[in-house]
Amino acid sequence: MVQADQLERGAVGGAPGGVPPAPRTRAADAGWRIILHGVAAIGLIMLVVPTLIIIITSFDTRNFIGFPPAGFALERFDRLVHDQAIIDAAVTSLSVAVAAVLLDVVLAVPAAIAFVRREFAGKSFLLAFLQIPLMLPGIVIGIALLIFISTIGIDLSLGMLVLGHVVLTFPFVLRITMSRMERADIALEEAARNLGASRLVVFGRIQLPYLAPGIVAGAAFAFLSSFDNLTVSLFLTPVGDMTLPVHLFFLMRYDLDPVVAAVATVQVLATLTIIVVGLRVAGEDAIVST
């Protein structure tokens, strides 16, 4: 229940002054409020419970998926650690994500600075253009790339997969970096130029240090997107070398291995860590910009 003292003053439920509602409506108010809070509660439970369930289930000891768990042990984690296929897939996902993010940063940071500091013909069009991947379903991007690659005769490889992920995650890094750049003080850059700095020096010694937190936030976001991605990876993953989501996908389709629970928990915790660390480094404005 919502505590009374946390209700905003002057909100619908507590406007000070004015005519108090008739007794009939007061009862209706209470009833309505119950409904409202009830639905919200259902929604919040729906949002949170699945994640909690995963963590709890990963300690189960049985050989199949069920709830509640029969026992609490680290059995499934032990199996996870010895499952070479999963570990390989995780490493692959990691390398692909890191490579994609590096490329993203190299492409997006200069672009972000240029968008904020320069005026040119077709600027808003280009900005929208570079964010198109955000509007397309992942599956469309995936199959488009698949057809394209096979048409020009290149084999599927991790390199191609990285490029696919770059397309997908580039807009995040661009937006977040731009958001940070928009709040940069141009006087600092001008002062540096006045003191004799070339544009390159201004970029390296003034702009980049300022952008760093934004870049980290964007990189964290892009990393998670790439690591968790299935829709594009499904089509571009080379046969022998699967990313973790793809591997798990096939695993879950044909044989519901309980070890997936352990993987899930590890992933949730890792994601949480990345987000917390990312926020620490990037600071408050990272939240604002996302």
Partner: peptide, 9 residues
């Protein structure tokens, strides 16, 4: 250009 003027602002 602004970085080659020997003025201090």
């Amino acid at each position: 250009p602004a970085n080659r003027r020997e003025v201090g602002l």
